[in-house]
Simulated assay, not measured.
Amino acid sequence: AHVITHYHRTIDKVTERFLGKRQIGTTGRGIGPTYADKINRVGIRIQDIFDENILRQKVEAALDQKNHLLVKVFNRRAIDADEVVESLLSFADRLRPMVADTGLEIHRALERGETVLFEAGQATMLDVDHGTYPFVTSSSATAGGAATGSGIGPGKLERIIGIVKAYTTRVGAGPFPTELFDESGEFLRANGFEFGTTTGRPRRCGWYDAPIARYTARVNGVTDFVLTKLDVLTGLSTIPVCVAYEVDGVRVDEVPVNQSDFHHAKPVYEEFPGWTEDITGARTFEDLPKNARDYVLAVEAMSGARISAIGVGPGRDAIVVRHDLLGAS
């Protein structure tokens, strides 16, 4: 595990501002620069905090280059290595009991027959390899990242559960073919309370994008989708779903592999009738109104994997389960 330091956050913010109109839309929390240091092999790891001499050497080596960047390129003051070291050392006692060989712990849990759940913190289109680069996070947010991040072999992953909203959202810059700039977008944002978890930024909202769902199913090996926030669509007379794109006058049925084509992709919509009934009390698929059921079945047929559960409200129990998510596939 790598440590986000004060200088990572500083460089994140000044670099993003420096980009101007080409900003990526980072959170400013120092995530990208920390991953960059990891790949450049000048990162600070948790274990370094427990050895002051090694920590000091590594911080000084990292700041040798970064202070030149801050002072000469961004006209900022240099960061003092001693301040960084003292700050990191102050966490040592608190962190020591939390640090273990987690790969071994997980392996032993699996050997005991326990259920282990890995949770991704970002979406597929933000994956550094398979997302809308460069408008992505700095890590592997797809299912394969569970193996590399945990130290567990990929053969141990039995179920891959994809979480997909009944519409589409995004925080930060990057291509978004179904993005809405009208009252429909405001409807989704207001009803779905679409504001960034980390930053509180208003999320960009758009209609369900079936090609992206199929791409997600393929890249992750999704066995089950959980369709969330179906209740947010209640009250719409018709609900458009993106079934393909038009790129330079040509219909394209899958997410374009070329980034420029994806930027210029225009959605091809199919419209489905909406519903007005309150669905937040539904607990079985049959409880949903026919138009809601038809919508779920339609997007399921387009999305590359079965929809095993449906979120119908903000409560933990506001869910319709169609297939067991923890049992055998």
Rank of each mutant, 00 (worst) to 15 (best):
A100F: 15
L95S: 11
I39W: 06
D129M: 14
F118K: 09
Q57K: 14
R94E: 15
D64G: 02
K21N: 14
L110A: 11
D64C: 02
A92P: 04
L55I: 09
A92I: 06
F18N: 12
F118M: 13
A123P: 10
N53W: 05
V42S: 09
Q57H: 07
T115E: 09
T15C: 06
T124I: 14
A61M: 07
G28A: 05
I54H: 06
Q47V: 13
L89C: 12
I49L: 15
L110K: 11
M125F: 14
E114I: 06
A78H: 00
I49F: 06
V128D: 05
D48F: 04
A100P: 06
P33F: 04
L70R: 00
I49N: 09
N75S: 12
R77E: 05
K21P: 15
K38W: 05
M98E: 13
L117G: 08
L55M: 07
L69S: 02
S90D: 08
I31M: 05
G28V: 05
Q65H: 10
A120Q: 05
V59W: 02
G30V: 02
V99K: 09
A109K: 14
E52K: 05
N75A: 14
R22G: 10
V99D: 10
E114C: 10
H68S: 07
D93V: 04
R41W: 11
V116Y: 09
D127G: 07
R76W: 03
L19S: 13
V128E: 06
E52T: 08
N40P: 01
H130W: 09
V84H: 01
A123G: 15
T102M: 14
G28E: 05
L55T: 06
